[in-house]
Write a protein that binds this DNA or RNA. Structure first.
Lengths: 262, 262
DNA sequence: GGTGGGGTGTGGTCTGACCACATGCTACAG
DNA sequence: CTGTAGCATGTGGTCAGACCACACCCCACC
């Protein structure tokens, strides 16, 4: 396999090896494109193609100019590339919306479970060794912003998607956060598409706000089963309401993690 | 924001819009690079950068030559790009291994739950309307291959990773499958790294084989809770055994992975 | 000492050229 | 008429060179 690596692939491979070996670390500068091209014996355009890939994947950022801050810098920001990937994958009809929703159910149930358990643990242990209590300030701020009555549907749903992403971030799991970030645009897409067919947006938005508050309350109370259940109903409910298909409720998996009811 | 799109970004955007509008569908050919460049008023190198990105993301494949089969063809194979993304993300220390493992626990528990429930449903309904029974032939074939006593550790672990991916595929959820495919190389990486420190590989591999068989048996028996529990113990057990850290039980690692990059 | 302007190095882009390859057609031989 | 060898064509893959815009750095000048 991999008969002969194309020029840009050798560049990508070289950079990947440098990352793995530790020669390149987040924060470091990549050599200038021209230098890299000469060093690897390829054309500058091939170097650029590899750098472009890494940039879209969220592994580095580039900026023109001179001095520190310019050039290609390793950043490795999670979700940066996953977002582009998921968005394009959905655009190309690669992912059925139902699968996106089901994956949300699984991941978000896990997220709020972890958050609630961390919260409960922070309560039980008086010890102030490490602040285990999850930081929900960002999600709460988003909820406050969503109270504004002047929001359009699109604006509301954008904040909604940000709220769910913020919960994932608060859980601290970077892989889940990255995946959720990737799904975000897909989520916003189907949410917005479905919202146009709702009987009463005002009514629905009020319900969504209340559900969000309830989820946060359950987390802060350390009630993991409740948080899990609320999140499931929140996501599945909106999907069912906007897509007229009750398939999700049918099999009703309690998502991931531990069984809810024994 | 988004002051001025760079040339290759306009190309990417144009293709994305064509995908969303249905002008481009999986199986279609992209216009030749030169034509696309002329059409969009950019240089061919910019078109190439956009195409390169789409190729790495698994949205199209390119081939030289002439006639049908050559050129850039939309494929939208799920997980194609996620694999590159995750691999590089891990290479750049973007994802802690613990988060990868925790995400596996969540996703795979969901996968086997769905499989087991589908299996149980297939049993209960005598009706042969649609064969709901999940197709486990690929996973089982992999298990058979893993019985070979001549396998090296690396070969065994490769098959192991493939087995878990095959389970995800069998579940039918494309988003989960894509994510697992992306995590696969990361999984193989930490599994292989940890295996070198094991007391007895022979002993461990025997246990892993047995656990795999038990998981499949639970799925086929339609016993979702058992399957979920077995998968959890299987993954967490190996991780604990090879990493000596029981951090998984006490989750929530505050992730402040933002690189300083300045 | 402060300040302005040019020098310099960087990414961003375009152009043109060449190569390798796969195809398809055509002209020639049978 | 048929089959095949070989050239024409169109494609991606790559390179080299050139120019631009930009941000920083340094030094001469005020």
């Amino acid at each position: 396999m991999s008969a002969v690596l194309r020029a840009w692939e050798t560049v990508l491979q070289s950079i990947e090896l440098d990352l793995l070996s530790g020669r390149l670390r987040p924060g470091d500068h990549l050599p200038p494109e021209r230098a890299l091209a000469a060093e690897l014996g390829v054309g500058r355009s091939s170097v650029r193609e590899a750098i472009r890939v890494l940039e879209v994947l969220g592994l580095l950022r580039t900026s023109s100019g001179s001095g520190p801050g310019a050039g290609a810098i390793i950043v490795a920001l999670p979700g940066g590339g996953m977002s582009a990937l998921m968005r394009l994958q959905v655009a190309a009809h690669g992912f059925p919306v139902a699968d996106v929703v089901k994956t949300r159910l699984v991941l978000e149930a896990s997220v709020v479970t972890e958050l609630a358990e961390a919260s409960a643990q922070a309560d039980s242990t008086m010890v102030a060794t490490v602040s285990l209590r999850p930081n929900l300030s960002t999600p709460v701020q988003l909820l406050d912003a969503m109270e504004s009555p002047t929001l359009t549907e699109a604006e509301f749903l954008t904040l909604d998607a940000e709220f769910h992403l913020a919960l994932a971030e608060a859980s601290g799991n970077q892989v889940v956060t990255a995946t959720m970030a990737g799904l975000r645009s897909a989520i916003e897409g189907y949410a917005r598409a479905g919202a146009t067919g709702l009987a009463s947006w005002a009514h629905t938005s009020i319900r969504l706000r209340a559900e969000h508050r309830a989820i946060v309350a359950a987390i802060e109370a350390g009630d993991a089963p409740a948080a899990r259940s609320l999140v499931h109903d929140h996501i599945a409910g909106y999907y069912a309401e906007t897509h007229q298909t009750h398939l999700l409720a049918a099999h009703h998996t309690d998502a991931s993690g531990q069984p809810v009811a024994r």
